[in-house]
Every structure is written in C-alpha cells, then in structure tokens.
Design a protein around this nucleic acid. Sequence first.
DNA 1: ATGCGAAGTAGGGAAAACCCCATTGTACAT
DNA 2: ATGTACAATGGGGTTTTCCCTACTTCGCAT
Lengths: 217, 217
Amino acid sequence: MDKIKVILVDDHKIFRDGFRMLLQSFSFVEVIAEASNGNEFLSLIEDHSADIIFMDINMPQLDGVEASQKALEKYPDLKIIALTTFLDDDYLEQMLMAGVEGYMLKSAEIEEFEKAIVKVYEGGNYFSDEIVSLLSDKLNMLRKKRKKKDDLPEFTDREKEVLELICKGYGNKQIAEATFLSIKTIEKHKSSLFQKTGTYNTVNLVIYAFKHQIIKF
Amino acid sequence: MDKIKVILVDDHKIFRDGFRMLLQSFSFVEVIAEASNGNEFLSLIEDHSADIIFMDINMPQLDGVEASQKALEKYPDLKIIALTTFLDDDYLEQMLMAGVEGYMLKSAEIEEFEKAIVKVYEGGNYFSDEIVSLLSDKLNMLRKKRKKKDDLPEFTDREKEVLELICKGYGNKQIAEATFLSIKTIEKHKSSLFQKTGTYNTVNLVIYAFKHQIIKF
DNA sequence: ATGCGAAGTAGGGAAAACCCCATTGTACAT
DNA sequence: ATGTACAATGGGGTTTTCCCTACTTCGCAT
C-alpha cells in the first residue's frame, strides 16, 4: 500500500519540523511538502497531489481560512485538517463552512493524529473532543440568546396563515385568492400582525419574521 | 461518592430494560426512574432530581425534542443525552438547539456510554463520532448549496446602498431622506434591483436578500 | 339569557409602492 | 469626436398597501 501523502502548512518552522518528525514516525505517512503561509501553499498544490493537508489557521499573508476556501474551490476533493493552538478560536465556524474534513488542537496526543489521518484518508472526518465541546457551547450560547429575545406575541390561526404567505412573497391580492377571503380581510389580519409585532408595514413584518425565526429558509 | 442518578426515557420497554441493566453494571450509576414518553417524563422530573437524562427522540405523544425543550425551560441545569437509532436523523439540529449535552447512537459500545456519562456529569458534553460526522456532512451540504446559488448579480453602489436601507425596514420616503435623493430615484433603483434579482416587489426583494445572505442579522 | 371580548369579515379613502418613459452624465471604444 | 452602454436622476399615472371604522359570530363568564 502506498503511503498517505501529507502537506504541512504552518508559519512556524519549528512546529513544522517537530510535526513532520511525529508524522514520519507513522510508517504509512509521508510528508511530501511544506508551506509557511496560505499563498505558498496555494502555489504548492499545483505541483503536488496530496492526500491530506494539515493547515494552521493563524498565518501571515493568507490565513488558513481563506487558503482552505480557495484551495477547495479549485480542488474540491482535497482533504484538509485544520490545526489550532488555543481554544479561543473565532474562526471555527468559518473554517467548518470552508469545508475542512477535520479540526484539532496542535496539542493533541500522538494517537489522536494517527486516528485523524486514517479516518480522514478513508473519507470520514475527525474533530477532537475539545473542538466538539466548543461547538456545542457556541450552539448553546446561540440558543440562550434566542430564548431571551423570544417573548413572541401569540398569533391567531388566520394570522399565522397570512404571515406564512406574506413570507413566501405573496401580495395581499394573491393571499386573498389563496385563502378565499377578500383583500380587505387580509389587510385587517396584516394590520393585527403589525400591532402585535410592533411593525408598521409588510417589509418590516417580514424582517421581524426572519429575525425571530418564525419562518424557515 | 454518591452514585450518578439517571432517568431513562424511551417508548420501548425492552430497550429500557436492556439499557437499565447495562447502566447498572457501572458501579457509579443508579437508574432512579423511567418514562415511556415525553409527557410522562415531564411529570416525573417534578419529583426526582436526576443528574443525567437519556432521552429517546422518536416517541409517541410528546417526542424527545419538545420534551427536552420544555424540561430545559423549567430546569436549565438538566443534563440530557439524546439517543437515536438511525443516522437519517432530521431532528439533529433541533435537538442540539434544544440544548442537549450529548448525542449518541443506541448502538454505541458500552465503553462509549460510560465515557459519555462521566463527561456529561462533569459538565462537559459527549457526541459520538457518527453524530459529529453527520453534523459535518450537513455543514458541507449547506456550504455547497450556498455556493451553487451564489451567482449573485452585481449591484451598483447606489443599489447596494438602497438595498441595505430597504432591509433595515426603511420605506421609499425614508430612504430618499437618508440619501438626499428624490423618492422617484429610489423607486428606480429598487426597480433595477427587482430586475436583477428576478423579484417584483419590496417584500420579495427582502426575502431574496435574506436567503442569499446579502444582509446580516 | 345576556353581556362582553376576541376573532374574523369587510368598505372608503389616504398614502405608499410600482411601472413606463425621459433626461443627464460619464466612461470606454472605435 | 462620436457612438454606445450604463449608472443615476426624476415625472405622470396606475396599482397596492395601509389606516380607520363597522358588522357578525362565537365562546364564556356572570
């Protein structure tokens, strides 16, 4: 079996040296190239076909987030494992959205790296426990924030029905046709919605609905 | 040290029986109660102070999602570990948003449950690898969908300016005042926006903007 | 049994949004 | 220099939205 070809991207030479040694100690891994920032990496992948990229996030010139995005745009099958030092990481969401296959701390145990490489190489993904915890915490924060804001008023059935249609982009006339009611009635229901939500026209109402997640995308 | 007090919620008695036995085999765990659906669980927690809840998701009467939401509303410090059978789970996001501390497959290994209980009891959280993979896949799907849709038209500076104000809920008059232009001009810019986006009124335009993430919440 | 409030149904008229069309200015190419 | 393209600015007139008011129905409490 061929060795798994790995590229290292990190701005600290010392870290790369240490990490390369660690990886080479796995018999099934070969470090085929290194880059010290995003730009260097992007030109590098033109000439090398790697299986897995270990990508630092904080780097000068072009950081890991943008480098990953650009690389994946051109080579969507690239498998990237993001590396981060601390847990106060604001880039987590961005990096996940960029489409990385793994995310772990530089301080992880040797066995973790081994596990991660194998899993990602086989088409899976790997996230260290700390990262998962962090993500979960962020979700919780989000939830609490929403909860606080959500003293939503109560809507009647008709109002909910009308609001749904409004948020689909229907005008009063179309809503009237869809519900077999007169335009005037629709207008009244909208008026009630305005009052209950503290808005004063349709656009505001739609914005309100989106912000309070009453409607789904 | 006291035993960790656990409540089981699942509609299948056989599963509860087997799972209880499994848990009791850990010397540090005590199953103090069981419920066969969400409603039963909600009345149960009034009388029991549990450390950890194992909560099935698909249940008759009141499912795991709503039960968890309601329970956590009343007792925010409750620690819930969600259990699911299959991986085709549409409730994943909802359950995470509800604020569960863990999420795992019923088919998990014994050691996994042990690990999960300890971690969650100590204030952490636990998600099985399969769940994490699923979540990551969903994120990837989301990303790809956004990418595909994002052949957004190009807007002129004025148009962007007007669009921003529209999405703040401003009417034509207010936008005109804010930009020192005539209402008619604003109307024309909006008209251009309609054409470029394929929409035909302000409400539709706002919806378009939200869906394509042109504006931020 | 009756009264009272809340939801659902509309009309008339004012205000805002929208469509078709015209003018000006600017950049860029021939 | 001149034509083409397009952004930016607006006017006139129609359509839609919005506000104020009114009537009916239904549940529910006195």
